[in-house]
Structure formats: structure tokens, C-alpha cells
């Protein structure tokens, strides 16, 4: 299955929309999409996972990398609209608390 990616920038906040399964086949593509965003002049990056029905450990690892980049660049990195299945995978990996996770985009945009 193909994963579709696009991003929107508004007032220094980049929102990335991922549409499709975030698995081992899609992770390299998503990583290549995310990496350059951290070099731009944005303050924060928000990843919208509402259209991700399934995520595996490679997907989580890719997001962890995003977290690492955001730390080294001093930017905010937030996840939003996780489906219950996706949330479960984060919980099993015990990484739900490591990320800043928000239920809606509006919440995620607060204080970025």
C-alpha cells in the first residue's frame, strides 16, 4: 500500500499529514520527508496521524528520530489524532509519554 504525504505551513508551524500505513515499507519515505523540515525556519512540527490505520515499530522509530532532530534543533515536535490502534502500539513500546501527544490539531497548535 502506498503512503501519501503532504505538509502545510502556517505561521511557522509545519503540519505533516500522513495518509496510509506507517510500516517498514513506508518508513524510509516518511523519514526522507520529515528530515528536511527540521532544517527550515519553522518553530514546530506537528504530525497528524489521523489517517494512519496501522503503525509498526519502524514507524515509531522514525518518529523517535524526529524527536531527536527536534531536540537538537530546539524545535517542538508533536503528534496528534492517534487512532486507538496506533496509540496501543505506542503504549506497548512504552513511548506514549516520551512524545507530546494531542487529541486534536487545535490542541496541538496551542503554545507552539
Amino acid at each position: 500500500m502506498k503512503v501519501n504525504l503532504h505538509s502545510e505551513e502556517k505561521e511557522g508551524v509545519v503540519t505533516v499529514f500522513i495518509d496510509g500505513e506507517f510500516d517498514m515499507a513506508a518508513s524510509p519515505k516518511i523519514r526522507n520527508f520529515l528530515a528536511p523540515l527540521f532544517h527550515e525556519n519553522s518553530r514546530s512540527i506537528i504530525v497528524d496521524l489521523s489517517k494512519v490505520p496501522y503503525i509498526d515499530s519502524s514507524g515509531i522509530a522514525t518518529l523517535v528520530e524526529g524527536l531527536q532532530w527536534s531536540h537538537s534543533k530546539g524545535k517542538k515536535f508533536r503528534l496528534t489524532q492517534l487512532s486507538p490502534t496506533v496509540k496501543d502500539v505506542f503504549e506497548i513500546a512504552r513511548l506514549l509519554t516520551v512524545f507530546e501527544v494531542f487529541d486534536t490539531i487545535e490542541d496541538a497548535l496551542q503554545g507552539v
Binding site: M24, S27, P28, E65
Partner: peptide, 10 residues
């Protein structure tokens, strides 16, 4: 997989 080495390490 085609995963990046850093991703694999994580």
C-alpha cells in the same frame, strides 16, 4: 528492509 541505519538502531 530499506530502513535507515539510525532507524534500525532505534
Amino acid at each position: 528492509t530499506e530502513l535507515n541505519e539510525n532507524t534500525i538502531k532505534i
